[in-house]
Simulated assay, not measured.
Amino acid sequence: MSGATVLSEIAAERTRQDAQWGGPAHDDTMPLDEFVALIRDYAGWARVKAREGSMVEARQRLIQVAALAVAAVESLDRRGTGRPAVVPRRSAGMDWE
């Protein structure tokens, strides 16, 4: 499956989430820590489903995780609190731990 296909699935999930929860009007009321908690919860469900052998369900949860992360970033950008002036190619302070 191509990256473009996965990204289109994430976009479709964002559309579904917006329809269910109210879109930016809802998202912009959520603190970042709530987004992070949701992302962590859905990622945990992906892990559970993978351990159960349900890769289709694990994959769907990961699509939801990605869509939630996009929602969080979009919300930060609308608030003007998350977007760097220049997008760095690589930042020493952002290495994976």
Rank of each mutant, 00 (worst) to 15 (best):
V73Q: 06
Y42T: 13
A92L: 11
Y42R: 15
L38V: 07
A4M: 08
A11F: 09
L32H: 10
R89A: 13
Y42N: 12
R40C: 08
A58F: 03
A58V: 02
V87K: 09
E57Y: 06
Y42Q: 12
D33G: 04
A11C: 05
V86K: 09
V36L: 14
E52K: 07
A85R: 10
A50R: 03
A72E: 08
G44E: 00
W96S: 15
R90W: 04
A4R: 11
D95N: 07
E97R: 14
E97F: 11
R61D: 10
F35C: 02
R89L: 13
A71M: 14
L32A: 09
A67W: 02
M55Y: 15
V36D: 13
T15F: 08
D41Y: 13
I63V: 13
A58H: 01
G44F: 01
V86T: 07
R14K: 15
K49G: 02
D28F: 08
R90C: 04
D27P: 05
R47W: 08
L62A: 09
F35P: 00
D18R: 14
V48L: 11
A66Q: 03
A12F: 01
A19T: 08
D41R: 14
P88N: 07
A92P: 07
A11Q: 11
P84R: 00
R90F: 09
A25T: 11
S54F: 10
E52I: 06
P24W: 15
Q17G: 00
A71D: 09
T29C: 08
D27E: 06
R89M: 09
Q60L: 12
E52P: 00
R78E: 03
E9V: 03
Q60P: 00
L76P: 00
T81N: 05
A19Y: 03
R47E: 09
R78D: 01
I39V: 08
Q17T: 01
R78P: 06
D28P: 02
Q60G: 11
P88F: 02
D33A: 10
I10A: 00
R16D: 12
A43M: 05
R89E: 13
S2Y: 07
D33W: 09
V6Q: 02
G93I: 01
G23Q: 01
